[in-house]
Amino acid sequence: MRKNPILRETSHLLIPAILLFALYVQFHGDYGPGGGFQAGVIFASGVILYALLHGIKKAEKVISLTLAKTLAAIGLLLYAGIGVLGIFLGGNFLDYNVLAHDPTHGQHWGIFFIELGVGITVATVMISIFYAFAKFKK
């Protein structure tokens, strides 16, 4: 697959579009279909496509397994951290109303960061599971 010039050139066109689309889905999830789960999976599929066509070594220069694992933990911590932040600001766990002066604004901020945490975790979990399988040696 690595030798096939048509696939390689097409992937050069497609991968930036896939990654950009993932970001659009991530941040437009409040208004249209989409959100952290979908964006994470789409982002991961962009990186996996790159890894399939150019080899794991080159893909690991972009996102290494260590970085992916760390980011997966950070995404989950971001989610839980927003919840704990709600407690410190005087609300309940995962209560976004207190995050800003206006409850609706607080909800906006809360959902934004929650979805960001979900997106980061899902994307990096998928990428590192793929790496784990691809690097497995008999």
């Binding site: 989610y79 609706t104 959902i111 929650i114």
Partner: peptide, 22 residues
């Protein structure tokens, strides 16, 4: 009114059922 975003699925997912999603 409560959440203020148009996609109901997102508001249920991230706000009403935030524990679930966590």
């Amino acid at each position: 009114e409560e959440i203020g975003i148009p996609n109901i699925v997102t508001s249920v997912l991230a706000s009403y059922r935030g524990f679930d999603t966590l």
